[in-house]
Design a protein around this nucleic acid. Structure first.
Length: 232
DNA sequence: AAAGATCTCAACCGCAACGGC
DNA sequence: TGCCGTTGCGGTTGAGATCTT
């Protein structure tokens, strides 16, 4: 019978020693190798959410909360992606903070607005395309550091969708107004930049020429240079 | 001081995605 | 292409801590 519930100091030591010796990964082997009577999920979670030396303790700072709010507006409840942009914070930290501090606040505000009869705009969350879409983009191989690839509006009838030639990039179909609103927030103080790193190798790329677009794809330094160049 | 209410956050569960065969 | 084992994620739970009465 596998143990459940709170971890003991002894178990923490066993897991820490194991990770220090063999590194993280291969979680299905960890319980056996580390001598822990725990399931692999429990071991992984304990390391990621508690034992990892990268974890930052203490209250969220103002700038962390601000970043969290922006990213949540963009990504929705994608806690892992949000946490990836806030150094030292885990997805669990972010989720817990949101559910205990921010959600009750927004709920209260909504109710207040309902009570005073004021109109509230409904903001829908732009979600990244499924990951398997990214595979087809293959930006690295198609646009190299010395490539003169151009990003042009698509003519396939979909608004807010761009082709990056060669190859197609899809984006969620959202209204221009919605996108402009997100751009204003996301690209605030970033007049010279055309992309924002949203974590896990994904970037949001914007072009405000009246035909806006959002893209989610893997990106490297060369691609960033290209995006910031006049060729974009 | 004690009992009940509320809050916090570590841990669990179920499921979808991924990757190898 | 489908199957199966593994991984990672988000929603939820519940024990312990803290606050309120």
């Amino acid at each position: 019978m596998l143990r459940k519930g709170a971890w003991t100091a002894e178990e923490d030591v066993l897991l820490k020693n194991h990770i220090q010796k063999f590194g993280k990964g291969k979680w299905h082997l960890v319980p056996l190798k580390a001598g822990l009577n725990r399931c692999r999920k429990s071991c992984r979670l304990r390391w990621l959410n508690y034992l990892s030396p990268d974890i930052k303790r203490g209250d969220f700072e103002e700038d962390e909360v601000d970043l969290m709010l922006r990213l949540h507006k963009l990504l929705g409840n994608r806690w892992a992606l949000i946490a990836g942009r806030i150094p030292g914070r885990t997805a669990n930290d972010v989720k817990n903070y949101w559910n205990t501090h921010i959600r009750p606040r927004t709920k209260r505000q909504k109710e207040e607005h309902k009570d005073d009869g004021s109109q509230h705009a409904i903001v829908s969350v732009i979600k990244p395309q499924p990951r398997n879409l990214c595979k087809t983009l293959n930006m690295y191989s198609q646009i190299g550091p010395h490539d003169t690839g151009k990003i042009t509006p698509s003519n396939d009838g979909f608004r807010n969708t761009f082709n990056i030639s060669p190859g197609l990039v899809s984006s969620p179909i959202v209204s221009d107004d919605q996108i402009k609103e997100y751009f204003n927030e996301l690209f605030e103080d970033r007049e010279t930049e055309r992309s924002v790193d949203v974590g896990e190798g994904l970037h949001v790329v914007a072009q405000e020429d009246g035909r806006n677009g959002l893209f989610y794809f893997p990106i490297d330094d060369a691609m960033l240079d290209l995006l910031d160049s006049e060729q974009f």
